[in-house]
């Protein structure tokens, strides 16, 4: 075997390794599929994305799905508060964080941001998100089900949409580790009066939850949640 053949084979092996590593980061998602299916696209939906900006997601949600996308990266806010030792101020910060008017957002992508918050901050954030979400609007959030490991360097995750049923999980450095996981009933209470329409427990120690804000009717304060198709 010539040297050129050997190098060619080595290069090929490197390519295969890189591809398989990238493949390992790609996981199926069921809640995102339902989230997209549940968006009312008859008019341009307005999406609020609480994760870091991802170029391909902007193209996907803005171009393919046809949404107007608002990006508010909360991980930067958390990091800023951690670096200034002001984590306790997060609830007050979240109270004024969202300038959007009430009930103007069609869908919210929280990703896993709640995993990084204390209960008080999570309460306030959930309250604000519930406020801006329009009746019938959807909220997608991921919650870890595993206890955080203190030995692992804290990371956030960039959730990159591969297609409607797959996400790539790209970790990046965080100033704060994940907090203790929320129980299922705590998650439901956190987002009241939103209703859980889908709840998927994944093998990756993650819970994908899809909420819908009930539609107000004249007789009752809220109508039962619509089925997500």
């Amino acid at each position: 075997m010539g040297l050129s053949d050997l190098f060619a084979r080595l290069r090929k092996d490197d390519d295969v390794t890189a591809t398989s590593e990238a493949d390992e980061l790609i996981k199926p998602t069921r809640a995102l599929t339902r989230f997209l299916a549940g968006l009312d696209t008859s008019q341009q939906p307005i999406l609020l994305d609480l994760g870091p900006v991802v170029g391909s997601n902007v193209t996907f949600f803005g171009g393919e799905v046809g949404c107007k996308l608002l990006i508010e990266d909360l991980s930067k806010d958390i990091d800023q508060h951690v670096s200034q030792s002001k984590v306790a101020d997060l609830p007050d910060f979240f109270e004024g964080r969202f300038p959007q008017e009430s009930e103007t957002i069609s869908g919210i992508l929280c990703w896993d941001i709640f995993d990084y918050l204390d209960r008080a901050a999570a309460d306030q954030l959930a309250r604000q998100l519930t406020r801006v979400l329009e009746p019938g609007g959807l909220l997608l959030a991921f919650f870890s089900t595993a206890d955080p490991q203190s030995t692992i360097r804290p990371t956030y995750t960039r959730h990159v949409v591969v297609d409607r049923s797959h996400l790539e999980y790209r970790p990046y450095k965080a100033a704060r580790a994940k907090q203790r996981p929320l129980l299922n009933r705590d998650i439901q209470r956190l987002f009241e009066p939103l209703k859980v329409t889908e709840n998927f427990l994944l093998k990756t120690h993650q819970r994908e939850v899809l909420f819908r804000k009930p539609v107000k009717t004249s007789g009752a304060p809220f109508e039962s949640p619509l089925a997500v198709r």
Partner: peptide, 19 residues
């Protein structure tokens, strides 16, 4: 804008309307 490309490592805060 009808087309928006945001590189990794770029900062963006605001809204994107491609429609």
């Amino acid at each position: 804008s009808p087309r928006v490309a945001i590189a990794e490592g770029a900062h963006f805060r605001g809204s994107v309307d491609m429609q």
